[in-house]
Design a protein around this nucleic acid. Structure first.
Lengths: 116, 116
DNA sequence: GTATCATCTGCACAACTGCTCATATACTAA
DNA sequence: TTAGTATATGAGCAGTTGTGCAGATGATAC
């Protein structure tokens, strides 16, 4: 049992209650965190930024990033699961593209923040 | 030395070149990843969402989140370093607030994505 | 000065992440 | 069928992350 949890009086019970009422459901918070996690890695960010320009295959992305194709494939799976990228098959080659306009928007908004 | 790195031919040299020219500088990519990492944790997301309503002290946040004040303090330091929250002192109490309008925008945009 | 309260910080540890390697799958061509 | 190419997947491992604990810091009251 934690000993330092709120032995202090709660200074503003009202504000805590207000926050509780406005809180998003835990499941939604978790999905949101998972979503942001997809952007929270340099390799994945580079993939997303590259695909913003045009579709690319796994081999292209590996060459662009300078990492193994296996690593790219692992990251693409994660991005697929988050519905951030989609692919289409042309013979043996899979071409990946962004699945959602939100992706570019989010990156631009974040760039605004870190540049100012 | 990796054995599976690009023994295959690069299928689309042009696209790789195009991606290379459009790429953000590595330092900016890293800062961007760090920035998104701040949102990529349920505890920090809850903090940011709570502070969107109004300022709160560390003790309030610990009560709201159900974690130790130490944990809250650790997370607030990280958010401070990313310039996402700011604080003001009133006697012994520190009141935290959001430091930037981008924060709420980003969360709303992400919610759009996961809800559709 | 001492005592108390709110917060911060260093450390340790379990849990998680991203990578490589080895192997499996899917498609094409002969 | 077999061989070769493109991608996917599982295991294992080093590095990172989030938390609680113990102790430190800073402010207030006496």
């Amino acid at each position: 049992m934690p000993t330092d949890r709120c032995q202090c009086r709660i200074v503003h019970e009202q504000q805590v209650e207000k926050a509780r009422r406005a809180a998003l459901p835990p499941a939604e918070i978790d999905r949101l965190a998972q979503f942001f996690k997809a952007f929270a890695d340099p390799t994945r960010l580079k993939i997303l930024q590259a695909l913003h320009l045009e579709e690319m295959c796994v081999c292209d992305l590996a060459a662009f990033l300078g990492v193994s194709e296996s690593a790219v494939s692992h990251q693409l799976r994660l991005l697929r699961q988050m519905a951030l990228v989609a692919n289409r098959r042309e013979g043996p080659v899979l071409y990946y593209r962004l699945a959602d306009a939100h992706v570019s928007q989010l990156i631009l908004l974040a760039l605004d923040h870190i540049r100012e």
